[in-house]
């Protein structure tokens, strides 16, 4: 009796564990890992925005930063930016120097003598509109959210201004608006996109270094940009699912 019971249990155990193992195996077949740059568009149709910046085209004029401040009522003080431009300079003795005077709006002056420069380039920064955005994850009230278009937006009439998202953003793209007491950030000019207009920074860029578009559409300009160029996202190790793709970005940039 005892032995028989043991046999049944063992068979039971084998069947059950087999089912579980098989289930896991088939589940893994059903949803295999997919996604470019650890970003995977959610189910649905309609636009799902991504952004591309071509470092080689950026002339560091900071027209983007200026246009953004003008379009979106960003405070003019040099502590609040929705987008800004950095100049990286890597010297011959391998020091990294980064400057961004007033987010680039005041113009760049290269202080390193040309003979000491190993490499130098501009990096425009803005919200990455991450797919797994750490900032919307931590919002305690649901004032920060990802829109159906894949944009990380802030409901300023609901935000409590705790600043948790500011801490959670690895890219420093959020700030507390000094007058409103709520968080402010890039919306990819959502108010323009919905009216069929280009975002202010894209409009202002004289060299078309910045592009954006629908990632779901594999023939869109942004999809081609990602496909044809050697693109990287910032801080990929954090697995934020960033959707701001830089062409020919240097590894030193963080």
């Amino acid at each position: 009796m005892g032995i028989k019971k043991e046999n049944v249990t063992r068979r039971d155990f084998l069947v059950k564990s087999g089912t579980i193992a098989g289930g896991v195996f088939f589940a893994s077949l059903l949803s295999p890992f997919k996604g470019v740059y650890a970003t995977k568009e959610p189910e649905g149709d309609g636009v799902w925005y991504g952004i591309g910046i071509d470092i080689e085209k950026c002339i560091g004029c900071a027209s983007c930063a200026r246009a953004c401040k003008n379009e979106n009522d960003v405070p003019k003080e040099p502590f609040f930016f929705r987008n800004w431009v950095e100049q990286y300079t890597i010297t011959n003795n391998e020091e990294i120097k980064v400057i961004s005077p007033n987010g680039g709006i005041d113009g760049f002056t290269q202080t390193v003598p040309e003979k000491d420069i190993y490499k130098t380039f501009f990096v425009p920064k803005m919200c990455n509109h991450c797919e797994k955005s750490p900032c919307t994850q931590v919002c305690p009230v649901g004032a920060s959210f990802e829109s159906p278009e894949g944009l990380a937006l802030v409901d300023q009439n609901y935000c409590i201004g705790c600043g948790y998202c500011v801490q959670a953003c690895p890219y420093g793209c959020r700030y507390i608006h000094p007058d409103k007491g709520v968080v402010d950030k890039c919306t990819l000019c959502y108010h323009r996109l919905t009216k069929g207009l280009d975002p202010a920074c894209m409009l202002a860029c004289p060299t078309r270094a910045r592009i954006y578009g629908n990632l779901r559409d594999k023939d869109s300009e942004i999809s081609k940009f990602i496909r044809d160029n050697n693109c990287v996202v910032l801080k990929p190790q954090l697995n934020t699912g960033a959707k701001l793709y830089y062409n020919s970005l240097n590894q030193e940039v963080r």
Binding site: G142, E146, H191
Partner: peptide, 20 residues
Amino acid sequence: EFGHYRGLALKEIADKEVKH
């Protein structure tokens, strides 16, 4: 309406004035 946030917020953000 769309997720864990105010659906109206989308409209409010979209209604901001276009300046450029």
